Amino acid sequence: MSQVGPVLVVTMIDDPTADLVIRELHDRNTPVVRLDSGDFPATLSVAATLTPQGITGTLSTPTRTADLSRVRSLYYRRPSGFSFPHLDEQDARFALTQARYGLGGVLASLPGCLYVNHPHRIGDAEFKPSGLAAAAQSGLQVPATLITSEPDAARAFVKKHGPAIYKPLSTPLYRIDGVSCTVTVDEVTADQIDDRVSGTAHLFQHRIDKVADVRVTVIGHRVFYVRIDSDLLDWRTDYERLSYSVVEPPPGIEDALWRYMDFFGLVFGAFDFAIDRTGTWWFLECNPSGQWAWLEPPTGLPMVAAMADLLERSR
C-alpha cells in the first residue's frame, strides 16, 4: 500500500458526484476508502483508541481498511442514516445514539485531517436562519425574510413585502402513495395563510424579480460562477429547462463569500443567488454539502479536478 494516507469518502451508495471524484483520484493513483456510515455496524466496523497523538485505529468495510491516524482528508458527502430494524424501538434509539456519538465522534476527530467539510460545520451551516444572518453580516444582499409560527405575522409580512414566497427551512423527503416528494419553493399570498402556520416554524421571503439564477461553487481556494437561465421560480424543479453559462461576479461578491466561508469554517460551499433586473446578486442560501458536478459538462469548468486537488491537498 502507498505510504501516502488515503482520502476517506463518506457517502451513500448512490452518489454520482462522489463517483466522479473517486474516479479522478484513482486516475491519479491516490488511495481512497469509500464508506457509508449508515452501514455501521452491519458491514462497517470501527476500532479506535485515544492516544496522546490523537485517534488511532481502523475503520473496516468488506473490501477496505482505513488507518485512522493516516487519513489525509475526509470528503463528507451524504451518508445514509443509522438504522437498527432488528431492535425494538427503545433499544434501537439507544443504539442509534451510541452510533452517532461513537462512530460520528471518531470521524469528526481524525488527527491532521482536512475535512471537506467537517460534519459539525456542515450541521451549523445547514440552519437557514444562521446562513441568512451570516450572509448579511458578510456583506451580501439578502431578501427581506420572516421566520414565524404566527399567522398574523405571516400575513402582515406578505402584505408589506409581497410578492412573497414560502420555502421550507429544511427539505426532508416524504412519500405520497409510495412516491418520494419534497416541499418546493412557491409563491404565497396573504389570503392563503391560515391557522396551520401556527403548527410549526415557517420561512417567508420577498420574491426577487429575477432575470436569472447563479450557482457559485467554492472548492478550496477556487470559485466557479455559473449563471442558470430558465423561466422557473425554483430552477431545481426541472433541470431540462435550464441553460448554463460561465459569468464573472460583481465587485465585492467574492470577498463576501470568503467571509461567509470563514464564519462557518467551510472549505466547500454551493451558493445560490438570484440576479434582479438591475444586476444585483441576492443571496438565497448556501448548501455546505450541495451538488455541483452536473455543472462541469455544460460549462467545461474543471470542478472535479479542483475537488481532487483539494482532497489531495496539492492546492
Rank of each mutant, 00 (worst) to 15 (best):
L25P: 04
R28Q: 08
N29T: 13
N29D: 14
T30I: 10
P31A: 03
V32N: 07
V33I: 07
R34C: 01
R34D: 03
R34I: 01
R34K: 02
D36L: 04
D36F: 00
S37C: 11
G38Y: 01
F40E: 04
P41D: 14
A42D: 15
A42H: 12
T43H: 03
T43W: 01
L44K: 01
S45H: 10
A47I: 10
A47H: 11
A47W: 09
T49S: 02
P52T: 14
P52M: 14
P52N: 03
Q53N: 11
I55R: 07
T56V: 11
T56S: 04
G57H: 07
L59V: 03
T61W: 06
T63D: 12
T63M: 09
R64T: 01
R64E: 09
L68P: 12
S69M: 08
S69Y: 09
R70M: 01
R72W: 08
Y75E: 10
R77W: 08
R77Q: 06
P79N: 03
S80T: 11
S80N: 14
F82R: 07
S83W: 02
L87I: 13
D88K: 14
E89P: 00
E89H: 15
Q90V: 15
A92F: 04
A92Y: 07
A95G: 07
L96R: 15
T97H: 14
T97M: 13
A99R: 06
A99P: 04
A99L: 11
L103V: 12
L103P: 02
L103N: 11
L103H: 13
G104D: 00
G105R: 10
G105A: 06
V106S: 07
L107K: 09
A108I: 03
S109T: 12
L110K: 12
P111N: 05
C113V: 13
C113N: 07
L114G: 02
V116E: 05
V116C: 06
H118A: 04
H118K: 06
H118W: 00
H120C: 11
R121W: 02
D124N: 12
A125V: 11
F127T: 14
K128C: 14
G131C: 14
G131Y: 04
L132E: 00
A134N: 03
A134Q: 05
A135C: 03
A136R: 15
A136G: 14
S138K: 05
S138C: 00
L140I: 01
Q141W: 06
Q141M: 06
Q141I: 10
P143Y: 10
A144H: 09
L146Y: 02
I147S: 00
I147E: 00
T148R: 00
S149G: 07
E150W: 02
P151N: 03
